[in-house]
Simulated scan of single mutants.
Amino acid sequence: MAAKLDDYLRFNETALNLRAQRQQLLASNIANADTPNYKARDIDFAKTLQGAMAGKSSTVPPVELARTSSAHISGKATGDGGIGGSPLLYRKETQSSVDGNTVDMDVERNQFTDNAVRYEAGITAVNAQIKGLLAAIQPG
């Protein structure tokens, strides 16, 4: 029974998780608007959601960290693994800048707001699903 409930809610749960991660990515772009040579990043949300629903994991292998002393702890950096198993993409430059920064604040604010509205719509959809389940369970 619980597995069926999980399956029923999985799509919206996955979409909300990806929207939250994308919101952080867009906020990072905005925060780095004045950082020289910063390249704005984003994801193809539809492809990322399809990959996440199919259960695909990140295809980017971890990177071995360089050690300059034998006393250093070895480790692996996950690098730029992306979101939901999909790689992060560079946003196409809309206007050139002297310092090499590709963040266009108008584009970033628009994407940030659009993503926030879609996140809220996802929450509304989950609430409707839960209300439907409660209506089916409760006598009356």
Rank of each mutant, 00 (worst) to 15 (best):
Q50C: 00
I83P: 02
M53L: 15
D44C: 05
T14D: 00
T59G: 10
A46T: 13
Q138F: 12
Y38D: 11
K39W: 05
Q111K: 13
P36M: 14
Y8A: 10
D6R: 08
N32Y: 11
D114V: 15
A33I: 13
Y8P: 00
M1H: 09
A135T: 13
K39R: 14
G122A: 09
I73Y: 14
N32R: 08
T59Q: 15
I43Y: 09
R91G: 03
P62T: 15
I137Q: 09
I43H: 02
E64V: 12
A77V: 07
G140Q: 15
A31G: 10
M1P: 01
G55W: 05
N127H: 06
L133R: 07
A40G: 04
D6W: 03
N29V: 06
A20L: 13
S97R: 13
A77L: 12
Q138G: 00
A52G: 03
K131P: 06
S74V: 07
P139A: 15
E108G: 09
D6L: 07
A2D: 03
A121F: 03
M53I: 12
T68F: 15
K4G: 02
D42Q: 10
R67W: 03
T78F: 12
N12R: 10
L26K: 11
V63T: 10
Q138W: 03
Q21D: 04
R91Q: 15
K47S: 13
L9V: 12
G100A: 06
A66R: 11
A66H: 15
T48Q: 05
D34F: 01
K39Q: 14
D44A: 14
G82P: 02
R109F: 13
P87K: 14
Q24L: 11
A135R: 13
D80A: 14
K47P: 01
A116W: 08
D106P: 05
S57L: 07
